[in-house]
Each structure stands twice: as structure tokens, then as C-alpha cells.
Design a protein around this nucleic acid. Structure first.
Length: 922
RNA sequence: GCGGAUGUGGCGUAAUUGGUAGCCGCGCCAGACUUAGGAUCUGGUGUCGAGAGACGUGUGGGUUCGAGUCCCGUCAUCCGCACCA
């Protein structure tokens, strides 16, 4: 009987839908397992063959876990807010909701063809009010919370208000934007507005004046992870630095917990490293430096407190608030000129050009330990956003300070015994200290490590500094000057933001006439009519960024239709957190940080019961495109085949990969492809036109996009699923190459034939042969191990071997084929379901029970040992299974060939490795 | 510059974790069948060599009876961060 995949796949996907086979409910009688895919942004281009790679892997895992008796939550939804739909709306006037709706429909159609086991009743879309109600709710909670640095969690802001009223700012320990000092009396005398301004300094969601990445072309600010090399990740438009009043999330307060949490989750080491890098913890010290002949004192941050005696100058960032305070009258003109030259350059230009620039302020600082007078300079190599925006420069032991000192002819004092600083600085943290004694501190003779500790202790005791931990992680900018996002549940009174009542949620996104900013430069929401509260106060005009809706979506799947809570306690305590999360690495420093932050915040509130959202994370590799080329002979319309092109002067031209098969060009299709190729001539090899190829990003302009629909149409979904897994290790990036797909398809047909004799199912209920049982159990063992370890590509091979063995033994046995069908079900659910029913089963194969392998069947009757002499394998011996070590040694030595290889010597040592080798050392 | 990963046939890859390197698939070669095709089946296929055999996991050392696997060095490619004090 023919393997008619089209008919089979159509029938069973309908059956799954009609019988709600993938519906999942909480069930306390079963252990839960939560498998999640990173939900897609539905773009206009639809899915290409790379997108389903991770989805197929998670689908296999979900189906496997279900067969193993777990209650598996495997949902899907859409990250529906985003820039492309809005950009499209600006160009065409088409409402982004409509575009998004259409794109989702297209995505759904494509996903359905592949046979995923999603419970679509739990689908969520971030742009729907029932969903974003909870995004807005979380924002309100963040606005109404501060981060307590002594209990290390978020607490209600009302606690702070109470403390301020009774004891001022003295007794609080809270993460803040800047240190404030006021008494209870001062607090109580403040106006409402002043109090609100103070509170803003502590809120977890706060309005702050911060340096932002402003993208004029997109008309909005961007997060650090949305900018790469000075241009926007989406669109590639230039980005500039600008101070703006923006909503921010105090992610930095969670830096330490985000860092520590990494130790308890099962992610790849490289991804954890990326996050550690991004968080960027560094331990050091802050130290105060007094400005000579002035009351001004400023603080610097250093990780090399030990080098304080080698400080020969100070450097301020150009944006530092101290710049204007320390510049002397004589130097003012020079400093202003320098600051102007910095401002005129974009971030990108500054990054490109690393030449040394700077200007002297005219002032001096006093080194608190050596007492020496040292000049204060300004340079853009010091960043305003890190540490305190000011540094002590130690040219002998920091390469950047060294370059600066050389350029401006500043002194260099070496502090480590034997180091040579005539050509370059000595940056290593090792060696014995010299030249480091003064003001009661003597570091000479200590190692660098000891000196750092001694200096830290000394400055704390003397009150000239303190131990300090700095993080690179900045607070997240949370406003976007755009339309297509969640509205903030915020109105303004007296220019201060207030929260609208929780009961009013969701605050729905209003209609606007155009999706452009207003004439006065306000965000598009400025065009919305009635964008005011009942009391006439104006609402916030910005919307939330893309990561807002994706930060807690995994929680919503647990209880997607709950209108009273983000997730009910019962649902959350049952599903807890994501056991397996599959997605790309591109979210390492964006979504995966924000989600962890958001989750920890909700955990602090007691809303959810787990501190980390994603227990295990697997990054699937990217599927690149495999482009094909034809070679046109210059100034002709003649194309020459790949291996003959060296004899001609040719221009390579991208050709649509869909009219090329195994690098052979379909000439008729090519002629029809473009009018100019209609009259094309060809120089063939062996009667074929062979195309060249290259691995490139999959994109329309390279004509290398492969649509999964086309593969499903031609080979079926089950072949596509198997083939995507067969392509190589899941985590590895690889080009899409259809050259091997026939082999996988052939295997499925071969498997199909196992069950049939002519047109009839020929499965017999007789006793299975030992050899067949062994084939089967070998497969069960291998596939179980492979699925648990995401080594799907080797599973496919194992299936092929098993089917080959069963084919040659003409196995038609139910005790073999029934379990085989169950093993097949996670990988190729359609064909498995068909065979399962053909064998007379009534219920879905999805509800079958995974077979456990039995070691008994895997035991060998005899074991082959390789006999080697001094490590060189020479011949094999076969002994009965269970033969003792000593016996094996004896048999090996008495073998007829042994004497020859021993060359008359006596064996010094005999090593017997179970099942493998007898090595005789002579 | 710092950090991470990867180097195995013509190609994608495998090697049960230190035990006969190259499973499985593609491609290629030979054969069978045939309604001649982008179908199916069988066998072969790391390199050198007629052969026995020798050589082979980027490269150079080392540990070991035995190394693709462990250690030290080196080269190449890819990815992340980057004037972070």
C-alpha cells in the first residue's frame, strides 16, 4: 500500500482537533511538565524553514513526556506588539491590529501543517486587552514598590512613606537613583509634589531623567539590547545619546540576585556567561578626592585600590556634573571647545575612533594617601554611565591611562617590583608592591592581592572611602514614543504621574487617525481623542516596549482566561515554572534578563511560587540559507554549468532555490522565472546544469528562503519533522540543505511497508523473535536517552537502523511493531497515528504508554574482544557472554595468532576491558 | 583586549564519555529490475598500496598498555562583550 502522507496528515490533524487530544488540564494525579517555545513575533514574511526547528524539538519532547505519563503543558501564542507592524501602518495607513491579525492567521496555518501538539485553547496574544491588563497590572505593582536592600526583595512603597514620616531618610535601606538625605520634619513639610518626587527616587517603575538611546528615524528610544554598534537592531538606523525623562524599571536593584540565580538553573554555560558579562559585577572601592583650594570633593570607583600611590592625574567623563565645578577661568574656553567637539560626534563615531583626546580643567586634586597634588583632566575614555563618571588614573598599571599619560606627557610611577613600563603598562594583578607608602599606610612588600585588601580596610577606617560593588547592568528604559504597544495606566497631575485605579484595567489602546507623532512632536497617542481620565487629567502618551508583554507570558499560559488574576494560586502552584524552554540565543541579554527580573519581582510580591522562570533552557541553532548561483558569461545570455565556468569570464547570479534540486537547475522553470531568462542558452555538463552554492542568511533578496509549506506539500510534515532533526545537532547552526531529505523520506516509506502485505495490514500476534526484540529494545534505549539529551539527530539514525533490521528479518510482529509505533509518535505523529489505528487501536497514540527497554533482550550470547599487543589491535576472539576475566585472558593468550605477535616475549601485563579489548603488554 | 564555542571522509555527521575512528544519511561506483525516472532493490565506497600492511580526527608536544576524547602550546573559524576603571 502506498504511503499517502497527504491523506494521512489531513485525516489525523482533523481527528486531533475534533477530539481535543491536546487539551490539557491541571491534574494532581500526574506529575506536571511545562515545555515552552519562545513565542514568535508574527512578521509579514511568514515562517521559513528555520523557525520550526526549535518548535519541532520541543514538540518531540512534549509528546515524549506525555507518553511517559506526565501532564504536559505545551502552549503557543504571539508576541504581537512590535515595530514592524507600526512602521507598516505609518507607510500604508493600515491599522497594525489588522496587519497583526492577518500575520497571525498565516502563522497559525503554517504551524498547523506541521502537526504540533499545542493546546490552542490557551493561546495568548500580547496585544489583546485581556492579556495586557496584566502587563499594566504588573507595572502598577512596580510603581507601588521599592527594593529593600536589607531584606533583598521588593516591598510596598507605603512602608517607605511611613518611615520617612517618622525618621526621615536615615533608617531606610532602599535601592535608589541617588542618595537623598532628609529628616522626618523635612519630609512632613514637603508639598505633595515634592514628596512624589522623592518617592520617584525609590520606585521600581520610575520616571527618571536618563541618558537614552534615541533613534530619530524610528522616533523612539531603544533599550541597550535593541542597539548594536550604534545602530538600531530593527532597521539599522543611527542611534544617538540624549537625556530624556523616561519610564524606567529598576532592574539594577536585582543585579546580584540575577547573577546568583544563574547558579541554580540548567542553562548552557555560554548563555550564563553572556548574562554574567551583561550584569558585569565588579568588586572594588569608592574613594573621595578633595579638590585643591576648594570644598569640592568627588568620588571615584576603582578595582585597583592598591595602586593609589601611582595616581598621577584624575579624569572626569565629559558629561560629569563635576566638570563645570572644577574648571578654572583660564581653562574654560579650552574645556568648552573640547565638550563641543565630543557632542558633535555620534556614539558610533566615538566608538570607531579610539584616538586619545582630552583637556586639562586647570584644577588639582589631592591624593588622600600620598598627599600629592595631581591635575584633573577631562576625557571621553571615561564613561559617565559607569561607576561615578570619574577615575583616578594609574598610568603604570592601566593601558588606557598609560596611553593618555604618554599622549599628554604626564608622569608614570611604577608600583610593582621589576615591572617595565617604558613601552607599555603592566596591567596584571600580580607582583610585589613598591613606591607605596604614606599617610599611615605602607603597602611595600605586599602582593597585589594583599595590598588591595589592606587599602580597602585602611580607607574605610579613615573614612576616605568604602568597599563598593559595581554592576554594568543598567535600569531598563521602559517608555517608547510609539502607538502599537501597551498604554501606561498613568495620568499626570501637576506634571507628576499617578496611577489609575487597578479596577479600571485594562486601559485600552485608543484609536488614532494616523500613526505618526503629532505636529508638536508628541507620541501618536497625542492624537487620540478622549485620552484623558474622568477628572480631565491627561494620560501618559508613551507606550510600553516590546519586552513588556513577553516578560511574564509563560505565567499567563497557566491560567489564560482568568479575569481576576494574572494566574491563580492553584494553577501557579501546579505548573510552577517552565521545565524546558527552547529558543534562540538572540534573547540572551534582552528577554531572558527582563523575564527573570519580572519573575523575581512577582515572586517578591508572593504572586508566584518560583524565583526563576525557566529551569532548563536549550538554544536551538540558526538555520542559514543555502543560496544557489547560475553563471552568466559576460555580455551574453548564455549560462555555463558550475564545473565548466572556469573556462569563461562569468558573473554569478542568485537563482531561486525553489527551482533547483540537489544543485541541478530546472531549466524550464528558470526560463519562466524572469522575462530576461526566457531566451537563455545553456552550456551543460552531463546533460545537466549544475548550480554553485554558498551559505548565507536566509532572506528574500538571496532567493534562498524555503517555506515549510512547500516541503510539507512535497514530502509531508512527518518527513519535514524528521529531516529538521536529522540535519545535525539541535544547538548547532547549519545551512538548510535539502540534499538529504530523500533519504529520510525513503526511510518513512520503508517503515510504512513493514506493516503491510499488499493493501492489507499484516501484523501478526505471534511470538517475537529474539533478534527482532533486540532491534526494538536497542532502539527504545537509544531513543529514550537521545530525547532526554536533545540528541535527536542520532535518534533518526537509530530508527533507520532498526527499520533496516526489521525489514531484512521480514518482521511483521505486533509485539515489535506496536511499541515501535509509540516510539515513532513524538517524531512523526501523523504516520504513527495512522499505523496505530490500522493495527486496531481505538484511542490516540498520544495516549499510549512509552515502552521501557529490557536489558535482558540486549544481552549478547557471545562477546567479541579485540586482542591487542602494546595497544595495537591484532585480532578478534569470540567468547561466551559472562566468561570471566581470567578465562578471557587465557583464551586470548592461547589463540593461535598470539605467539606470533608476542615474538617470544612474556606478557608483562594483561588488561581486559569489559566487552571491548584484551590488551597484552609485552 | 576579555570571555565562550568549534575544528573528524567529497558533504551533513556518529563514536554509549579513555577502549578496534568514520554508525546513519547524502553523493559517487558497480549490479538487478524496468512502462527509462527526480522510481525501487542489492553490493561497494577514509587515504596510500597489486597485496600483506602502513598512515589517518587543524597543528606541535605530553600523560597512558591504549587519546578524536585528558593536559600544555599553537593555528584557523564562528559567536558574545568591549575605553566598565
Amino acid at each position: 500500500m502506498e504511503y499517502n502522507f497527504k491523506e494521512i496528515e489531513k485525516r489525523w490533524s482533523q481527528y486531533w482537533k475534533d477530539n481535543k487530544i491536546y487539551k490539557v488540564k491541571e491534574d494532581s494525579s500526574k506529575p506536571k511538565y511545562y515545555v515552552l517555545d519562545m513565542f514568535p513575533y508574527p512578521s509579514g514574511a511568514g515562517l521559513h524553514v528555520g523557525h520550526p526547528l526549535g518548535y519541532i524539538a520541543s514538540d518531540i519532547y512534549s509528546r515524549y513526556k506525555r507518553l511517559k505519563g506526565f501532564n504536559v503543558l505545551h502552549p503557543m501564542g504571539y508576541d504581537a506588539y512590535g515595530l514592524p507592524a507600526e512602521q507598516y501602518a505609518i507607510q500604508t495607513g493600515q491599522h497594525p491590529a489588522i496587519t497583526t491579525e492577518q500575520n497571525i492567521a498565516r502563522y497559525r496555518e503554517q504551524l498547523d501543517k506541521i502537526g504540533f501538539c499545542y493546546d490552542w485553547d490557551r493561546e495568548i496574544r500580547t496585544c489583546e486587552p485581556e492579556y495586557y491588563k496584566w502587563t499594566q497590572w504588573a507595572f502598577i505593582k512596580m510603581f507601588e514598590s521599592y527594593y529593600c536592600t536589607s531584606c533583598n526583595k521588593a516591598r510596598p512603597i507605603s512602608e517607605l512613606i511611613e518611615k520617612f514620616a517618622t525618621s526621615g531618610s536615615a533608617e531606610i535601606s532602599a535601592a535608589c537613583s541617588e542618595e537623598l538625605n532628609f529628616t522626618a520634619a523635612e519630609w512632613n513639610n514637603m508639598s505633595e509634589k515634592e514628596q512624589q518626587e522623592v518617592l520617584m527616587n525609590y520606585r521600581i517603575a520610575y520616571l527618571g531623567n536618563t541618558m537614552v538611546n534615541w533613534c530619530p528615524k524610528l522616533g523612539t528610544v531603544l533599550a541597550n539590547d535593541e542597539v548594536s554598534e550604534g545602530v538600531s537592531v530593527r532597521g539599522g538606523y543611527p542611534v544617538e545619546q540624549k537625556v530624556m525623562r523616561q519610564w524606567c524599571l529598576r532592574v539594577s536593584a536585582y543585579a546580584q540576585r540575577l547573577l546568583e540565580g544563574l547558579d541554580n538553573i540548567n542553562w548552557t554555560e555560554s548563555l550564563k556567561e553572556t548574562q554574567r558579562n551583561w550584569i558585569g559585577r565588579s568588586e572594588g572601592a569608592e574613594m573621595q578626592f578633595k579638590v585643591d583650594n576648594s570644598d569640592i570633593e568627588f568620588t571615584i570607583f576603582t578595582t585597583r585600590a592598591d595602586t593609589v600611590f601611582g595616581v598621577t592625574f584624575m579624569v572626569l567623563a565629559p558629561e560629569s556634573e563635576y566638570v563645570s565645578k572644577v574648571v578654572t577661568a583660564e581653562q574654560r574656553a579650552a574645556v568648552d571647545a573640547y565638550l563641543d567637539s565630543i557632542k558633535s560626534r555620534t556614539e558610533r563615531e566615538r566608538m570607531m575612533d579610539r584616538s586619545v583626546t582630552g583637556v586639562f580643567t586647570g584644577s588639582y586634586a589631592i591624593n588622600p594617601l600620598s598627599g600629592k597634588k595631581i591635575p584633573i583632566w577631562i576625557s571621553d575614555y571615561v564613561l559617565a554611565g559607569y561607576g561615578t563618571g570619574a577615575i583616578m588614573a594609574v598610568p603604570a598599571h592601566d593601558s588606557r591611562d598609560y596611553a593618555f599619560a604618554k599622549h599628554f606627557n604626564l608622569p608614570i610611577i611604577p608600583l610593582i617590583e621589576g615591572c617595565d613600563v617604558s613601552e607599555e603598562s603592566f596591567d596584571a594583578k600580580e607582583g610585589i608592591m613598591i613606591n607605596s607608602c604614606g599617610n599611615g599606610l605602607d603597602l611595600n612588600g605586599m602582593t597585589v592581592k594583599e595590598a588591595i585588601a589592606a587599602t580597602k580596610k585602611f580607607i574605610e577606617e579613615k573614612g576616605i572611602g568604602r568597599v563598593k560593588v559595581n554592576y554594568r547592568l543598567r535600569d531598563a528604559i521602559f517608555s517608547r514614543q510609539r502607538y502599537w504597544g501597551e498604554p501606561f495606566p498613568v495620568y499626570y497631575k501637576d506634571n507628576m504621574p499617578y496611577i489609575i485605579d487597578e479596577k479600571e484595567l485594562p486601559l485600552q489602546l485608543p484609536e488614532v487617525d494616523k500613526f505618526l507623532p503629532t505636529e508638536t512632536g508628541e507620541p501618536p497617542l497625542g492624537r487620540a481623542k478622549n485620552w484623558k481620565t474622568v477628572d480631565g487629567y491627561p494620560l501618559e502618551l508613551c507606550t510600553m516596549p516590546g519586552f513588556a508583554g513577553s516578560s511574564a507570558y509563560y505565567l499567563r499560559y497557566m491560567d489564560p482566561h482568568n479575569n481576576d488574576a494574572l494566574v491563580s494560586k492553584e494553577s501557579n502552584e501546579y505548573w510552577r515554572n517552565v521545565d524546558l524552554y527552547i529558543g534562540g540565543t538572540e534573547h540572551a541579554t534582552g528577554h531572558l534578563i527582563y523575564s527573570r527580573f519580572w519573575n523575581k519581582f512577582l515572586f517578591d510580591l508572593g504572586v508566584i511560587c518560583e524565583d526563576e522562570p525557566f529551569k532548563k533552557l536549550v538554544n536551538q541553532g540558526m538555520i542559514q540559507g543555502r543560496s544557489n548561483f547560475v553563471y552568466r558569461i559576460k555580455d551574453t545570455n548564455t549560462f555555463v554549468s558550475y564545473n565548466l565556468k572556469k573556462d569563461y569570464d562569468v558573473t554569478p547570479i542568485h537563482v531561486d532555490v525553489n527551482i533547483v534540486n540537489n544543485d541541478v537547475l530546472d531549466i524550464e522553470a528558470f526560463k519562466a522565472w524572469r522575462p530576461e531568462f526566457e531566451t537563455a542558452q545553456f552550456i551543460l555538463e552531463d546533460g545537466k546544469y549544475i548550480c554553485g552554492w554558498a551559505v548565507e542568511k536566509m532572506s528574500k533578496s538571496m532567493f534562498n528562503v524555503v517555506n515549510p509549506d512547500d516541503i510539507v506539500e512535497r514530502y509531508g510534515a512527518d518527513t519535514l519533522r524528521f529531516y529538521e532533526m536529522f540535519l545535525g545537532p539541535l544547538e548547532q547552526s547549519k545551512p538548510w540543505d535539502t540534499n538529504g531529505i530523500d533519504g529520510v523520506h525513503r526511510f518513512l516509506r520503508k517503515l510504512w511497508n513493514l506493516y503491510f502485505e499488499g493493501d492489507n495490514v499484516a501484523v501478526a500476534d505471534t511470538e517475537a523473535s529474539k533478534a527482532d526484540l533486540k532491534s526494538l529494545h536497542k532502539l527504545i534505549k537509544k531513543v529514550s536517552w537521545d530525547i532526554e539529551n536533545f540528541s535527536y539527530n542520532t535518534s533518526v539514525s537509530a530508527f533507520m537502523i532498526c527499520v533496516n533490521e526489521l525489514t531484512s528479518s521480514k518482521c511483521r510482529n505486533r509485539h515489535i511493531l506496536q511499541p515501535l509505533t509509540i516510539l515513532l509518535a513524538p517524531f512523526a505523529p501523523h504516520i504513527a497515528e495512522e499505523l496505530w489505528h490500522k493495527m486496531g487501536n481505538e484511542t490516540s497514540v498520544c495516549d499510549a504508554v512509552w515502552s521501557e527497554f529490557n536489558e535482558e533482550y540486549l544481552k549478547e550470547d557471545s562477546v567479541t574482544y579485540a586482542v591487542s599487543f602494546n595497544g595495537k589491535a591484532r585480532f578478534n576472539i569470540e567468547v561466551a557472554a559472562g566468561t570471566s576475566r581470567e578465562e578471557v585472558e587465557k583464551i586470548a593468550l592461547s589463540h593461535e595468532s598470539s605467539a606470533r605477535w608476542m615474538e617470544g616475549k612474556e606478557p608483562k601485563k594483561i588488561i581486559v576491558v569489559p566487552n571491548k579489548i584484551v590488551n597484552i603488554v609485552i
